[in-house]
């Protein structure tokens, strides 16, 4: 048989350590699986979802309450999206805490970071598609935040919302980004990310002469573990989908009316909290951007993990990177909890 992409990602044997749960946490693989669930359930939702102000929220109610298995499909889509953000964040933290980003993996680290941002944007655009009273103020605040950017803010705002005012043009733009623009970018970068994992020699380990553990496992053992992870994740998704429905509120009647939920979606609560502190451009745009840049430069400007420590938890050699990521993560967590 000719080798294909599956074989590229599953060589005949790999070092056992590369697929230990306690090393990788399985987070990257679970993210791939969740993305596939999102593609399938999202494609199914497209058969009913109507991206107009008048009908969006209603069409989601139709999916949720009338279409056979529609509620299941929608809840799976919702929960897979929320879990994806958490799993991708865990994956990022794991990569830093095990020093797995050293050359030749620096570029793949950046690809991963871009995928994290794309997942957040996908989650936000998907959330806006509800066009119900629950998303109203997040939409107003989020888009107005762009306007605070000097020079280009106003044009960026119009480009995003498709006019001078929120309306049908806005919804169709968010829809196009959600189902085509962002998905296209994420698919290209996602496939590239996976390809690079193998090209860079698989999951990060010390060079062979510095390895303590020489055990290897076969392709079949690797696939067995992957299937196991898929079964666990599917069970968790099905439980969540069965017992905790995705939110939907009445449709927006007037974009100015005082109604609905003023809370941002959960993954932006930390930004909402910071916006209370003053200048929106500084707290809402510069600070998050600064955090992103800080993450991006870790493989390039921070003390590097020593070769023999790569792939073990909390290497002494890259303490600074671990501290920075721990501080950023705790800050986001605390801000989210107090908001």
């Amino acid at each position: 048989m000719r080798p294909n992409f599956f074989h590229h990602l599953h060589p005949p044997t790999i070092p056992a350590k590369q697929s230990r749960w306690r090393y990788t946490l399985g987070a990257g693989g679970i993210a791939v699986f969740l993305s596939l669930v999102l593609l399938v359930t999202g494609a199914l939702e497209m058969f009913y979802y109507i991206p107009t102000q008048a009908e969006a929220a209603q069409s989601i109610q139709t999916i949720s309450y009338l279409v056979p298995f529609g509620g299941l499909v929608r809840n799976l889509h919702f929960w897979a999206a929320q879990l994806l953000l958490i799993v991708v964040a865990v994956h990022l933290v794991r990569v830093v805490f095990t020093g797995a980003y050293t050359p030749p993996r620096r570029f793949n680290y950046l690809l991963g970071l871009a995928l994290f941002i794309l997942s957040i944007l996908l989650d936000f655009t998907g959330y806006i598609l509800r066009w119900d009273q629950g998303i109203q103020w997040a939409l107003v605040v989020g888009t107005n935040l762009l306007k605070t950017i000097p020079w280009i803010g106003e044009s960026l705002y119009r480009l995003l919302i498709g006019g001078a005012e929120l309306g049908d043009a806005t919804l169709i733009r968010f829809y196009a980004w959600h189902i085509v623009g962002l998905i296209l970018l994420a698919s290209i970068l996602g496939i590239w990310h996976l390809f690079r994992v193998r090209r860079d020699g698989g999951v990060a380990l010390p060079p062979p002469n510095l390895r303590a553990d020489h055990e290897r496992i076969s392709r079949f053992e690797l696939v067995r573990r992957e299937v196991l992870a898929m079964i666990f994740v599917s069970a968790a998704l099905l439980l969540l989908a069965a017992f905790v429905p995705a939110p939907i509120a009445p449709p927006i009647t007037e974009l100015t009316a005082i109604s609905g939920d003023v809370r941002a979606p959960w993954f932006f609560l930390w930004v909402q909290e910071m916006l209370k502190w003053g200048d929106p451009f500084f707290w809402g745009i510069l600070v998050p951007l600064f955090m992103l840049v800080l993450l991006a430069i870790i493989p390039y400007f921070f003390p590097q993990p020593a070769e023999h420590e790569i792939g073990s938890w909390f290497p002494k050699s890259n303490r600074l990177a671990q501290i920075v990521v721990a501080v950023l993560a705790s800050a986001v967590l605390v801000l989210t909890l107090i908001e």
Binding site: W137, V140, V141, N144, L145, T256, I258, V262, L275, P280
Partner: peptide, 9 residues
């Protein structure tokens, strides 16, 4: 009654 911060009512 549009808040001058980021536009909520």
């Amino acid at each position: 009654l549009t808040c001058t911060h980021l536009g909520c009512t």
